[in-house]
């Protein structure tokens, strides 16, 4: 038993960190805040580096590593607020692979396809009403439900209407899944529990968001001075930072645990994936909110990067079922081992 990354895993973390620091600093969102984000330009490079097929077996075109490595990489994706379209590519490739759609799979793994996410509007819409994320130029759109996971062509959706996104660096549309919609690839939960993997990876992504907000707040608390001292000297601020660190630790540990449980194919897979999403989304939202407060009036502006973490934390929470829905669900599982 060892929850720390191995030397090989640490190498993967260092590689993706390096890449994202250079290619996807969070400052990029400031520049693009009015017109979406440029992240799709990164997909071919990520494909070349192998990050898109990390958890797929080699005979299915992937790198042959485990859910653990995927978790560690999605944590970094969240830390850099990478477009959630990345879920569409990585999970889409898994669906295509499981469905035996080799051509589609390889195209996805190369990073040359645009993939959007469809997410149920829940009680805010009808049973076939979705939000589409990053789907305006999408070749395929990922739709994951408890029972199965699928990739749809964009024209499977009707009444598509662009709306202003709260997280303004994302392209958001409303749409209705047509009755005649046919997926390009589909895999039932019995064959591959993509739903649990998606929740676990969204948990990892939210861990990253929470850590990003934590680090931004701590950095600011060390340099911003009032009353002649860095504000991090004062316990009111110091203890807020400590709270962020405590939450982030809980979220990271549970995400690590959940990823390993998925690899074991344990009957507790769903329980730990849901627990991970709950703890991590709660962490991401609270850390982002505390990060605003630590920054004072500056935290309330569009000039600071803080608001991007808060808004993305809410996106992570609402995709594939919010805290409210996940809490309802976790009570339906038997006692885990």
């Amino acid at each position: 038993m060892d929850l720390l990354p191995s030397a090989e895993q640490q190498q993967i973390i260092d590689t993706i960190k390096d890449f994202l620091v250079n290619e996807a600093s969070v400052d990029r969102l400031r520049e693009f805040s009015a017109i979406g984000n440029p992240d799709f330009e990164l997909w071919p490079q990520l494909g070349e580096l192998g990050f898109l097929g990390l958890g797929l077996p080699e005979d299915k075109g992937g790198v042959g590593l485990s859910a653990g490595e995927e978790m560690l990489v999605f944590q970094q994706f969240g830390y850099h607020l990478l477009s959630p379209a990345i879920f569409g590519i990585v999970l889409g490739a898994r669906i295509a692979a499981s469905a035996g759609e080799v051509e589609l799979r390889d195209e996805l793994l190369s990073g040359t396809m645009r993939v959007g996410l469809a997410n149920s509007r829940g009680l805010a819409g009808g049973p076939r009403d979705y939000h589409l994320f990053e789907a305006d130029e999408a070749d395929v759109i990922l739709l994951i439900e408890e029972s199965n996971a699928a990739l749809y062509p964009r024209d499977a959706f009707e009444q598509i209407a662009r709306v202003n996104a709260t997280d303004a660096v994302l392209v958001l549309e409303r749409a209705t899944l047509s009755n005649a919609a046919r997926p390009r690839a589909e895999v039932p939960v019995k064959v591959d529990n993509v739903h649990a993997r998606a929740l676990m990876l969204m948990g990892a992504y939210a861990v990253g968001i929470g850590e990003g907000a934590r680090d931004l707040a701590i950095e600011y608390a060390k340099v911003r001075e009032q009353f002649g001292k860095p504000i991090g000297f004062f316990q009111a601020i110091k203890h807020m930072c400590a709270d962020m660190a405590i939450r982030s630790e809980a979220a990271l540990c549970q995400a690590s645990f959940a990823s390993l449980v998925i690899d074991e194919g344990s009957p507790d897979t769903n329980f730990h994936a849901v627990a991970s999403k709950i703890v991590a989304c709660e962490t991401a939202i609270k850390n982002a909110a505390d990060c605003v407060q630590v920054h004072g009036a500056f935290g309330f502006t569009a000039e600071a990067n803080v608001h991007h973490y808060l808004k993305r934390a809410h996106v992570a929470d609402l995709i594939w079922g919010s805290l409210r829905e996940q809490r309802e669900r976790i009570l339906t599982f038997p006692t885990p081992a």
Binding site: A250, C253, Q254, F257, V279
Partner: peptide, 9 residues
């Protein structure tokens, strides 16, 4: 669940 994972960590 998270507390147990933290213990393992």
């Amino acid at each position: 669940a998270a507390a147990r994972a933290m213990t393992y960590m």
